[in-house]
Nucleic acid binder design. Sequence first.
DNA 1: CATAGTACCTTGCATAGCAAGGTACTATGC
DNA 2: GCATAGTACCTTGCTATGCAAGGTACTATG
Lengths: 130, 130
Amino acid sequence: MPPRLEATTEKWEVQVRKGVLELIILLSLRKHERYGYELITVVTGAMEFELTEGTIYPLLSRLHKDGLLTARWVEVPGGVPRKYYRLSERGRDALAAMKTSWIRLTYAVQRLMGDPRATRQEPTIRGSAK
Amino acid sequence: MPPRLEATTEKWEVQVRKGVLELIILLSLRKHERYGYELITVVTGAMEFELTEGTIYPLLSRLHKDGLLTARWVEVPGGVPRKYYRLSERGRDALAAMKTSWIRLTYAVQRLMGDPRATRQEPTIRGSAK
DNA sequence: CATAGTACCTTGCATAGCAAGGTACTATGC
DNA sequence: GCATAGTACCTTGCTATGCAAGGTACTATG
């Protein structure tokens, strides 16, 4: 028996998120530094899905390790210290590349959604093609 | 030492693809049935990335197992038989849900890309919030 | 008779979201 | 005084899935 349709769709949504989340985080850090916990509230507000700590902290660590982000600790009077992340030069380059790639992809998908015949192609009988 | 920027970006592109590919396949099967090998050429033509057999065959199997696709074997005179896949009712439902979800997501990302202040939010000093 | 094309498949690796659990501190309510 | 909830960081283990690589089998071409 196949799984519920909602389960299937939800699994798909997780996969999509997986790809886009990195872009979203870099975009969110374009203008000013932010800390992890803040990003959870910001992204959850901007997008319409939950972002949890188990997702954001490993992600930020990885982006930092890859050199896309720089980090600094900031003491908060009477509070838990925050780890602020900022886009590095390298991060800006990566973001630019991702934006281009993202736009190209969404454009192609849009074309597919709009006109199904846009990619129509006669199947070739095996062996008859050059 | 961090990896090359191209490596980082490419890894990201793989992740994004991972999510969208399922949508692309379902979209490609909207109007008529297709077989795996055909989908490779069609998708590679429509999108601008390579789609390999190691990706498409497991994916089609899964979609079939989940009940989104039906399959039938077609004998080809003087050729290797083809396994044609077609969207099921359930597949159409899933596609509709994915389209909605996809549009919402791309819209949100677009907003983020266009106006970085759209999601600006003053961080709260810990404990001072209600 | 080797090479390339069509067409199907599987195994194993790497990636990354996310649930769950952990730490530590502060503020609020009883 | 103590439980609860909020802020803020982190890790472990599970699961999903693209993709490289390898395999099968047939046909057409040089």
